[in-house]
């Protein structure tokens, strides 16, 4: 009997990744970062206690942060000082230099709900669609989108959340 030869595709990769990102919310004393001997190990909040109350996700903090904010599960402050201006922008940018992968949709709205323009402009990205040179290897190494995605925002293993627009001639992903 001949087994089908596995072909590398976004679908296969995602399936593999889905199986590997399951580990979730260890107690602080077992996370290999906190000292189990610390006198406050039981005073600090365990991640699972708080994060299990929020909309679930399957990687990173296992929280769908966009939904947690939109749904009002959390109300994080936007400013500490009275006179800081809160800047928002509702504009999507579609990035098409994606080779065999689906196009990338970058939503300004979601980002500016959390971040200020200065967190990205202009040292990470130019203020002109298509002007910033990016590629996946750089992103996986922590450049451009990878500054946050892979460190604090949802990790890079979730290809389709960025590569969400079927490229011309592709029938979905």
């Amino acid at each position: 009997m001949k087994l089908p030869k596995p072909r590398l595709s976004l679908a296969l990769l995602s399936a593999l990744l889905a199986g590997t990102v399951g580990a979730q919310w260890l107690p602080l004393g077992k996370d290999q970062v906190h000292d189990p001997q610390s006198p406050v190990i039981d005073i600090l909040q365990a991640p699972g206690e708080a994060l299990s109350q929020l909309p679930p996700d399957d990687a990173g903090n296992h929280v769908r942060w966009v939904d947690a904010l939109r749904g009002g599960y959390i109300q994080p402050r936007s400013t500490i000082f009275d006179n800081t201006q809160v800047r928002l922008l509702d504009q999507d940018i579609v990035m098409r230099n994606t080779g065999s992968a689906a196009y990338v949709r970058f939503p300004h709205r979601v980002h500016t709900e959390w971040l200020d323009c200065s967190n990205c402009h202009d040292y990470l990205f130019q203020r002109k669609a298509g002007a910033t040179r990016m590629n996946m290897l750089g992103i996986l190494s922590g450049e451009a989108c990878g500054r946050c995605h892979g460190a604090v925002a949802f990790p890079l293993t979730d290809c389709k959340r960025c590569h969400s627009v079927p490229a011309d001639g592709q029938v979905g992903q």
């Binding site: 994060l51 400013t79 500490i80 000082f81 800081t84 971040l115």
Partner: peptide, 17 residues
Amino acid sequence: PHWFHRMRFRCKVCHHE
């Protein structure tokens, strides 16, 4: 812990203000 602080403050508070 980022997770603990981002439940209370948006990124822009620490990384901008």
